[in-house]
Computed example of a mutant assay.
Amino acid sequence: MVKNLGKRLLQTVVVLFCVSLLIFILLRIIPGDAVTTMMGEHADAATIERLTKEMQLDQPVYVQFITYLKNICIGDFGTSYTLNKPVKDLLAAAFPNTVKLALMAAVIAWIIGIVCGIIAAVKKNGILDRIFMGFSLFGVSVPVFMVAMVLQYVVAYRLHWVAISGVEKWTGYILPAIALGWNSAGSIARLTRSTLVEVLQEDYMDTAKAKGLGRSAVIVLHGLRNAMLPVITMMALQISSLLSGAVISETIFSINGIGRLAVDAISKRDIPLLQGTVLFTTVIVIVGNLIADCLYAVLDPRIRKGA
């Protein structure tokens, strides 16, 4: 277990280096100039030249990359070109909003997905099974932006139940959380159903029934306990994906989170801010995957012995 964890940490360092290098190169081969974009097309050449030197953009690319690596190793992601604030401060201010949105979306997805999956498995090939699996397929297929805009129009604009955008109140997270968790709920429902249906056909389930346990007790105590292992792994992975994939929901509902920071950085060619958001979300995804692997090893002794 410890040896496997050490290997994963080493892989993490390699992945972070590769991501840093890739995003650094891509941002510098894209046509356009960051200083010109920031100052506008009417800025004079002298001002552009002066700012280019101040931002050290006149240095060779390899020198800029080495300097960038040295800075991120000490937690310095640079200063935003457009907001003139340290990137780490902007990330620290935006991250809590993303966490709240992702956690609420995860809870919604888990409750809906697990409940629908269990009912669909128990009522296999019945009307409820077809209804729930149809909705889960709909949830997996429909894009997040479409769900977000429909919810925003119907629930917020037409019914006036919640605010159209912003999170001044906790209710402001409801619609973006539903939109963000919609796809995850469908995936969890389908996985829960398929694994539980497979478990219910095992011989030990018949043995548990023969011992006199009721159907509900057999399903809860024996069926779910074994069927939930892959579901829990998916749930752990979804936390990291929800944290890093809230771009659309945050943009549509005007939530000041990591995703919206990334969109603003792209539109304004704010290189330090975009590098910081990409690297930060990469760390989140890697940590989420690492936690999922460790959790799966804890829950399944066979994986722990194999590690």
Results as ranks from 00 to 15, higher is better:
residue 307 A to M: 11
residue 189 A to L: 04
residue 124 K to T: 01
residue 131 I to A: 14
residue 248 I to L: 14
residue 22 L to V: 13
residue 304 R to G: 02
residue 295 L to V: 08
residue 222 H to E: 08
residue 222 H to L: 12
residue 122 V to M: 06
residue 305 K to F: 09
residue 242 L to Q: 06
residue 34 A to W: 06
residue 145 F to A: 05
residue 38 M to S: 12
residue 282 T to G: 14
residue 306 G to I: 10
residue 39 M to G: 01
residue 139 G to H: 02
residue 183 N to A: 13
residue 55 M to Q: 12
residue 178 I to Y: 02
residue 89 D to R: 01
residue 162 V to T: 12
residue 122 V to I: 15
residue 236 A to L: 15
residue 234 M to K: 04
residue 109 A to M: 11
residue 60 P to G: 11
residue 214 G to N: 11
residue 275 Q to H: 13
residue 57 L to S: 09
residue 27 L to S: 13
residue 108 I to F: 15
residue 245 G to H: 09
residue 262 A to K: 05
residue 259 G to I: 09
residue 261 L to Y: 03
residue 163 A to H: 01
residue 98 T to N: 07
residue 58 D to R: 05
residue 144 V to E: 15
residue 25 I to K: 00
residue 150 V to L: 15
residue 46 A to F: 11
residue 177 A to L: 03
residue 173 Y to M: 03
residue 290 L to Y: 06
residue 246 A to Y: 04
residue 275 Q to P: 05
residue 233 T to P: 07
residue 145 F to E: 10
residue 274 L to F: 11
residue 300 D to G: 05
residue 143 P to M: 03
residue 205 M to W: 03
residue 23 I to D: 09
residue 97 N to G: 02
residue 59 Q to E: 14
residue 198 E to I: 00
residue 3 K to D: 02
residue 196 L to E: 02
residue 241 S to K: 08
residue 145 F to L: 10
residue 74 I to W: 02
residue 296 Y to P: 00
residue 231 V to A: 05
residue 161 W to V: 13
residue 202 E to Y: 03
residue 270 D to T: 14
residue 70 K to M: 12
residue 234 M to Q: 14
residue 153 Y to K: 06
residue 192 T to A: 00
residue 279 L to V: 05
residue 168 E to W: 02
residue 52 T to N: 15
residue 35 V to Q: 01
residue 17 F to E: 01
residue 258 I to E: 07
residue 268 K to G: 13
residue 100 K to N: 13
residue 123 K to R: 15
residue 218 V to P: 08
residue 177 A to R: 00
residue 58 D to T: 13
residue 268 K to S: 15
residue 212 G to D: 09
residue 122 V to P: 00
residue 149 M to L: 15
residue 97 N to A: 14
residue 88 K to Q: 13
residue 44 D to A: 05
residue 276 G to N: 11
residue 177 A to F: 01
residue 84 N to D: 15
residue 231 V to I: 15
residue 274 L to G: 05
residue 32 G to E: 09
residue 255 I to P: 09
residue 210 A to K: 04
residue 219 I to V: 15
